[in-house]
Design a protein around this nucleic acid. Structure first.
Lengths: 219, 219
DNA sequence: CTTTTTTAAATAGGAGTCCTATCATAATAC
DNA sequence: GTATTATGATAGGACTCCTATTTAAAAAAG
């Protein structure tokens, strides 16, 4: 075992995530360039496309993990390109609400058949579902640690009923559409998301983290 | 099922990876700033710390997924800070070899107890091992698609014997240290890495991708 | 052996990404 | 009212990334 355990598993995971992320970032840069966008502008645009009502500058900054002046700069660039517009918030004259324009909505959305997507497609369907579940756990952990702002994911939704069909392939249930669904359908930014109360959310989180011991890998 | 399957699983995975990556990137920026480093400089430094013999500018660029002039700029900044030095390659007078200085080696390496690391620690041990395995598959897929250059990972190593102990908790075997090991010990950048031949590598890859159906999640 | 082509890196110039600090203004507290 | 706080815009600076060009050495062609 000499030399095999010098690096902690956690460091290796960070390394792997970092490496895949760096490849994704490079790809994003190349894929959005033809549309005249930068990576940050693309991220803002994608966030806004999922929220037609618009978002405040500050909220955008929180979601992207950058400071407010950084967002202001990117938003100004997007405004110049006619893809977003800014308007004063009627509820607070200090605030600015950023919305996508109809032109941006009409754009093809660039369904990027990227290499990263191809790599994901190489995984088995079960492995993809398992990866999604793990990612959602990670993202929720970050939210609980205040590292990133709450997002409209299933685990924090009042319509979410985790693991209520323990033996089924689709163990969870969405009370909004009243239908069961599996890990592969877990959402990261659902338009129908309803904020759950704190106790309910904690219950959801626990039930989601520790389901029945169906798919444990190694004891 | 209304509204639950409008987004493909793959898109959701991309979204989740993107979100976690963005949080990690923001954290890296904050964690390396006190040491007077930028994220790119930190990435170069970490890569070089694992290779005391140094690397060419071009190779660094490939690993980081950026162009050569970008690396030159960051290397110059690192040189100013006394953390790397450049020397001509004896084998090719056009090339520059970048090496870490003894000062950089002596630095504390900043074992960043980051929030991302904490989120990973929230996962069960089995889930962490499974995630590492998935990440390595993804990275190897990118390598096969020429999206990123080959790296010193187990799957491409001539000492790697995947799944030779099918029923054990540590199914793989490293012929270099002559010891069995499990998914949690898989390496992303092993100093003892020996480049395997193409047929051997293909065999490794296949055996690694499709082991015995031990830990499949849902059929 | 020259000449030509290719290759490695540096340089120049430009757009974009981040930051901190500061400023104007609106909402809120006293 | 005045003081404090919160939202964004602006200014200035370091860094990141790109493409295109230049310099110089190596490799290929004649």
């Amino acid at each position: 075992m000499v030399g095999m355990e010098t690096t902690a598993l956690r460091d290796r995971l960070m390394d792997g995530l970092d490496r895949f992320a760096s490849a994704m970032r490079a790809e994003v840069r190349r894929s959005v360039a033809p549309r005249g966008l930068s990576p940050a502008q693309d991220a803002i645009l994608r966030m806004l496309l999922a929220r037609p009502a618009g978002l405040r500058v500050r909220v955008l900054a929180g979601h992207l993990g950058v400071r407010q002046p950084t967002v202001t700069g990117s938003v100004i660039a997007l405004e110049r390109k006619g893809l977003v517009r800014r308007q004063a918030d009627p509820a607070d004259a200090r605030a600015t609400i950023v919305k996508v324009t109809p032109e941006a909505l009409a754009q093809p959305t660039a369904a990027a058949p990227s290499l990263a997507a191809a790599a994901l497609a190489d995984l088995s369907d079960a492995e993809q579902a398992s990866l999604l579940k793990t990612l959602i756990k990670l993202i929720r952990s970050l939210q609980l640690r205040q590292a990133i702002p709450p997002q409209r994911i299933c685990v924090t939704c009042k319509y979410f009923r985790p693991n209520v069909h323990p033996e089924a392939a689709e163990p969870h249930h969405c009370a909004f559409v009243d239908a069961p669904f599996g890990n592969r359908a877990l959402r990261l930014d659902c338009a129908e998301h309803g904020q759950a109360g704190a106790p309910e959310m904690a219950r959801n989180w626990n039930a989601f983290m520790t389901p029945r011991p169906r798919q444990e890998v190694q004891p």
